[in-house]
């Protein structure tokens, strides 16, 4: 039983220290996805930069966002949530758990017009296919090229992955009623459908497949951190589906001023100048000339495609069913 009581002791000790800290300085509790809060994500940068100016303690709680918030309802400890994506905004809005962010949106530099008063984008990217230039000489320039390639691709399941869902909507926007037909034509080229981005990207970096569904910003990591410029994003003539990561203030927060301060911080230079290199996506409120050079040099699509939450909700179930039928044959 030693191990158990040790574990219980640890638990107690944390509970006490947490309690003691909150008596002195206020704590802002931020729910964030695992990749965001981890030491290899933007979490440590955000925590340090915000604590320098807020006279508070910022505490990240990593894990699933919406399932946890929905389970907790207005009893949640969260003051702010960061790392939501546009797939869940409708559901999140309807839950009534979030309050308006109160920020001036004119600072945003996004490829689309953003008017949401609740969900605030802090970075963004385009969904795209990333290829290994040592194995693919002529990258696909369109969805049709993708079908005609003699190389296989790994995609993510739209039912378990945000990138997978974004691709589903991307194809739907390009092909409309022909989407099911397109998926059927693409099917022979799909090596497999992975559960999530990590699995799919792991297959790509392990050399199992030369082409993977990811983001146009993925190559920035390889160039910057590994000095490897052989991983490139294929840019399609049809345009690319835009992917935004969002933050929101929780309505039931007991630290409303701190939460507001955090929402403003997200759009500030301190946050925006760091987010690209820590989360490997474009900053939401910096003009392109102020991006880190490696991002400025990335090829950009001509056209951004994006469905707002109502359009996406109207299309999603049908598109999912088409996808399932086409790939199940």
């Amino acid at each position: 039983m030693k191990a158990l009581s040790f574990a219980a002791g640890l638990t107690l000790a944390t509970a006490i220290t947490a309690g003691a800290a909150s008596a002195q300085t206020p704590t802002l509790t931020v729910y964030a996805p695992d990749y965001f809060a981890s030491e290899w994500g933007p979490g440590p940068m955000v925590e340090q930069a915000f604590e320098e100016r807020c006279d508070c303690d910022l505490e990240f709680v990593p894990g699933d966002l919406m399932p946890r918030l929905m389970l907790e309802g207005d009893q949640t400890r969260a003051d702010v949530v960061i790392g939501l994506n546009t797939d869940v905004t409708q559901q999140a809005r309807e839950s009534g758990l979030f309050a308006p962010h109160g920020q001036d949106l004119s600072a945003l530099e996004l490829p689309i017009d953003w008017t949401d008063d609740t969900f605030l984008p802090f970075d963004w990217s385009y969904v795209s296919f990333v290829y290994d230039a040592t194995k693919i000489d002529t990258p696909p320039q369109s969805f049709e090229d993708l079908v005609e390639m003699d190389q296989k691709v790994v995609i993510q399941d739209p039912r378990s992955s945000a990138a997978g869902l974004a691709m589903l909507l991307w194809v739907k926007s390009v092909y409309g009623d022909e989407a099911e037909d397109y998926w059927q034509r693409l099917a022979p080229n799909i090596l497999t459908v992975a559960r999530g981005w990590s699995e799919a990207y792991g297959l790509f970096t392990d050399g199992e497949v030369p082409l993977v569904l990811s983001y146009t910003t993925s190559p920035a990591y390889h160039i910057e951190a590994e000095g490897d410029d052989t991983k490139k994003a294929a840019i399609f003539d049809e345009g690319h589906y835009a992917y935004f990561e969002l933050a929101a203030k929780v309505a039931s927060t007991d630290q409303p001023e701190l939460a507001d301060q955090f929402m403003a911080f997200i759009l500030s230079d301190a946050f925006q100048s760091q987010i690209a290199m820590t989360n490997w996506s474009f900053p939401s409120a910096l003009p392109r000339e102020d991006w880190p050079p490696v991002f400025r040099d990335l090829p950009m699509p001509e056209k951004a495609i994006f469905f707002d939450e109502d359009e996406a909700a109207a299309l999603r179930d049908e598109a999912l069913e088409e996808w399932r039928r086409a790939l199940s044959r």
Partner: peptide, 10 residues
Amino acid sequence: LTLGGGPSAT
């Protein structure tokens, strides 16, 4: 999912 190759392996 990963080795099933697609949604028929749901």
